[in-house]
Amino acid sequence: MNVTTLFDTPAAASPPIDGALTIAGLSKDFTVGGRSLPVLDGIDLVVRPGEFVSIVGPSGCGKSTLLRLVAGLDTDFAGEIRLDGKRITGTDLDRGLIFQDHRLFPWMTLEENVGLALLNSSIPKAQRARIVAEHIALLNLAGFEKAYPHQLSGGMAQRGAIARALVTEPKLLLLDEPLGALDALTRIHVQTELQRIWLRQRSTMLMVTHDVEEAVYLSDRVIIMGAKPGRIRRIVDIDLPHPRERSLPQLHRLRDEILAELIQPVPTPGEPENLVRLPVREAM
């Protein structure tokens, strides 16, 4: 029996049309002590609708800044970010952002926290409670609707944050090291959960992570960034069908490949980015 067919829903078969992210000539400077410091320099990136893209890179390469810009939390940058052709000028419910810490409000129950995301949505009030309940159930948190964040484990709270981000059904979901604060075992569980949800919702995902194995396991493409200033060094295609088995030898090979690239010294500026497509499909 093929495991893949169990997960393959009709939705997954037809690719989504919304959620195309285009980043062109994006640069961002921070002013530190009166001096301008480039954080991101000339980022060009196209993410296809429904694609899962991960960004890895050394700390300080501006990958979290990139997500904040796409989310619209920070609008002070040069260049262009467009979602489905529409220029990003601020936050919007068509983009969700999940942080490393869950950021649930401690004085609200889980369902109040998830419901908060819908306060400014066009969804009629009568349907909101049902939608909130559905998303809590989707993250396997049914029964904990009335629980306060301090009563949830770290993994549950982060799943709550994912539910809150998904409840508005964003076309693009941004994940800023979403599993970074979780222990190894919980991490693996939530990764599997993320994959299941992505296959169901098929929204575009852009995830920053420190965990190369996680990036390789979940993504269609992995972007390797270099630091000072933050640039895209290389893009690696992970051309394997979803859902994946963690033990696939191709995944391990790709992980080692990316790790090796990360350890390498930064190439001299001006060198063209090389897009590498690894021939891994034939092994299937």
Binding site: L73, T91, D92, L93, R103, L116, A117, L119, N120
Partner: peptide, 16 residues
Amino acid sequence: RSHFEVAKLYRTPLLP
């Protein structure tokens, strides 16, 4: 600041 950011992200109206 994180509270303000979450509110900004979900465009929480002023009164709530």
